[in-house]
Amino acid sequence: MITFSSFPAPPQDNYTFGVQQSPGLDNDVEMDLNLDDDEFESSGRRLTYPGEAITSSQAFMRGHGTYVDHEEVIASVSGTVERVNKLISVRAIRTRYNPEVGDLIVGRITEVQPRRWKVDANSRQDAVLMLSSVNLPGGVQRRKLESDELQMRTFFEEGDLLVAEVQAFFADGAMSLHTRSLKYGKLRNGQLVTVPPALIRRLKSHFLTLPCGVDLILGLNGYIWISKHVKQSEQEGEEGFDAEAVYSNRNDEIDDATRSAVSRVSNIIRVLATHFVPLTDSILLNAYEWAVEQEGDVKDLLQEDIVRCVLLCNNDNSVYEV
């Protein structure tokens, strides 16, 4: 029932200070010599550690994630170096979600305000979902009425999860969402898993269906919704746009096989996320097939040796190349 174990030992401290030349310095010399060269792009993505000198501050300007010390641009976070002309910035690996217009996100309502909802989307600020950018019952072209404003909680209330698209930004950088598509809207029949946003790649479609009867919505903000598969034909249609179904809080009947598949997929995602493997449909599918073959229990997936196997089973399948 319960097992106690020890905290993992801190890594052995092998750092030496002062004597060694930092690995960044070689690059610096090179860069100073040929400033016009596309040093950052040609050598692929360059990773930094906090405090690493990137380049000279006389030739380049510091951007986000960097600071200047002793006439050098120094990374303040660990991440990838990005360059736009003379502007050097570092995009952090562990960070909150940086929204872009058109991104698909999964969010949670935190507040209901006049004519708008506030949505937590793992970003620096809460996103805004206007009443005017959701589909209301009774047809897409329907005008917004005062009665709609008075019953906003019948559409979304605090705590509700929804899938939406980033529509635009406000002046303060907060994002504005919309759910004006039949694919978007309230989420039910499943559970949420959170991963670092850096692990979600931009895919052709973020609505995945695994053959095990599980639908996945990979929000670019790192929120992943895993739910029972709903057939295309049974999805709420455009015609009699049914408020009951779209804004319903009731789950459908879910059989045990689907439930354990949902749990298994979410455990696989957790495992991959802790080992910082970017998520794509093929990786998930491989891991799932492997997990089913092992016939282990769902909770066994979180054990250490199994974790390694899950990672290994994907090795031949270009985890690191994509």
């Binding site: 309230k186 499943g190 749990s263």
Partner: peptide, 23 residues
């Protein structure tokens, strides 16, 4: 948590065998 998430967790508890979010 949303109502549907809570309902999902509750109905999973009454399934046989009962199953929780992380298995």
């Amino acid at each position: 948590t949303s109502k549907s998430e809570r309902a999902y967790i509750q109905s999973a508890l009454h399934a046989s065998p009962p199953l929780r979010a992380d298995g």
